[in-house]
Design a protein around this nucleic acid. Structure first.
Lengths: 109, 109
DNA sequence: GATGATTACCTAGACATTCTAAATACATAG
DNA sequence: CTATGTATTTAGAATGTCTAGGTAATCATC
């Protein structure tokens, strides 16, 4: 099982989806994605944190400082209403793209 | 039916797949993709031509100048053996990614 | 109480890919 | 002779991800 290449543009969708479940801090988001993907998707911190800042700036997520169960300070992110809309839009785009790709890849067989 | 956002990294796969069918010149590749995707995927020229140069440099495709049925000079690209391998690899990566994404998007329902 | 592993965040700079926006040139239709 | 379609080329901007560092606190272990 080789490591997967993440495609540019999918990280936002993945993060929004994770936060739709429950509020999480950055480190926990990375862990969560690793688990759900069965170790196949490894999000680098240098990708994740800047992505979180961008999304907060766009109003899709909000954050507050909190203490984790491990007793450490962490910035916990949660979805906003705009974020829920964005999630729906990106999910729809993703599904449309996979449809088109299936046509393209399958065509001629 | 809105226009789809192409994800960074999928263009090579799409082009390789198109050339697996038959040799084509750049303009025809763009048309072909538009048709197969039912007008949903519009590849810009500024994306396509640089992508073709990159792929030729990597040895995945080869080219020769030829005359089209419309009587014009055109650079016709075709898959190399390495290109066929690359196509298989990228197709496998794409399929693995859609599997993982399906898990992520579906999880918790 | 030193050491190392884990948790948690931050950031600069490199890199790759796609897009916008232009230009060139030839063919054909009107 | 003008507009439209065919066909290629390229510069530069925009975007997003990664590499590769850094800080700091907690916990287990020796």
């Amino acid at each position: 099982m080789t490591k997967l290449n993440l495609l540019q543009g999918t990280l936002d969708l993945i993060v929004l989806r994770a936060l739709a479940e429950q509020p999480l801090h950055g480190y926990a988001i990375a862990q969560h994605i690793r688990e759900v993907s069965q170790q196949r998707l490894l999000i680098e911190e240098g990708s994740l944190y800047p992505a979180l800042y961008r999304m907060e700036k766009k109003g899709w997520i909000g954050s507050r400082w909190d203490t984790t169960d491990k007793g450490r300070r962490a910035r916990v992110y949660s979805l906003t209403a705009a974020g829920r809309e964005q999630l729906a839009a990106e999910r729809a785009n993703w599904e449309a793209l996979t449809d088109v790709m299936a046509r393209i890849l399958g065509q001629g067989e």
